[in-house]
Design a protein around this nucleic acid. Structure first.
Lengths: 190, 190
DNA sequence: GATTACATGTAAGTTGTTACATGATTAA
DNA sequence: TTAATCATGTAACAACTTACATGTAATC
């Protein structure tokens, strides 16, 4: 005999909300703006889809962490501009100060390489060369963003630069690893 | 008036199945073995939970990509040993040869740093120091695995080494970036 | 007039985790 | 005999994506 307890799975905090809150500390934005900003600027380490974004905006409004600025009668567009509230800022800071949780990401390319014995060495090398090419074009992109960022200046600018550096360090390490791995595979007769 | 088409979202291929197939090319394994292997060896770039693993094993069996070896009457444990079938190997190879899909991972630490202006510089630095410490202990772990791996030898061994090198390159790049970022923040008066 | 970009949203699905249950085997 | 580990599995939920609908505004 055993007691049957109700299963109450621990909720993993919804980080989408904090991404939104963070962006609204820069300036009031619409859902559309937020999506664009994330796609253009955070995409290296963060992604959101509309299916998450818009419901999150509604929930944040309900819990008064953000508020809807009604468009002035001059404004032509039907866009909804959101601002962060004092409460929202408080919650954002709480999250910013909290310890990071480990998040395992899944790297399909590495999984394929791990099982590389099952296909030809040449096919593995081709995958590595493709990966290297992707990383190189990413590096070029990062460096052009770096150029633009170094010209501008805002309170946020320093931290944006740091996250960009992370991307640059990472892709450079990836490129070095691809080069090394390709060489190692080339050296193998089989 | 508009035609209302049935919504049939494109299925994103279930990679859990391929992780299982790949591991079964090494040797017949039970669900428990697979979980342990993934946790111990692939955890740097791959994770699975039991809630995915066991249903996947059943589906793979149903579609005849793997088969259940009935335990010999001598075997004491109630474990189910699975082997990959010819069909399964074919499908695995197909996947191994396919082009990699981009997968955006979410890095909560970078997201926090991006919004760093909202908290004290010292708090951001503390996050970076914690990250660096985590990366350093990961590096130590990788290096001890490297030691063990260099002693053993199997057809798979070379590819395992390559994925391990990827981890080593990555964490080293992370450590360098943490050091640089901490220095940059220290240099700031604000 | 047509096309592209702006703008908000939802239905339906897949994917993945958590927190259990259940029972066998092994070691102290 | 008690505890730990081995071993398989599931219910409930949370997270997330895709593929749409719907309409406005700007531009070619």
């Amino acid at each position: 005999m055993s007691f049957r307890h109700k299963i109450i799975p621990m909720k993993t905090p919804n980080k989408t909300k904090f991404a939104i809150l963070g962006l609204l500390t820069i300036e009031p934005l619409s859902g559309y703006d937020i999506k664009k900003f994330i796609d253009q600027t955070l995409s290296y380490f963060w992604a959101e889809s509309n299916g998450q974004l818009y419901p999150a905006l509604q929930e944040l409004t309900k819990s008064k962490w953000i508020s809807l600025k009604k468009p002035s009668f001059k404004e032509k567009k039907a866009r909804k501009l959101y601002s962060i509230t004092d409460l929202g800022l408080l919650e954002l800071k709480k999250w910013l100060r909290s310890e990071e949780e480990k998040s395992v990401h899944r790297d399909e390319g590495l999984l394929k390489l791990f099982f590389g014995t099952n296909i030809d060495k040449e096919e593995c090398m081709q995958h590595l060369k493709n990966r290297r090419a992707r990383m190189k074009s990413r590096l070029t992109e990062f460096q052009s963003i770096l150029h633009q960022l170094q010209k501008r200046s805002s309170p946020h600018h320093l931290y944006w630069l740091l996250t960009l550096y992370n991307g640059i360090h990472s892709v450079k390490a990836e490129i070095r690893w691809c080069n090394q791995s390709i060489k190692i595979l080339e050296g193998r007769s089989s």
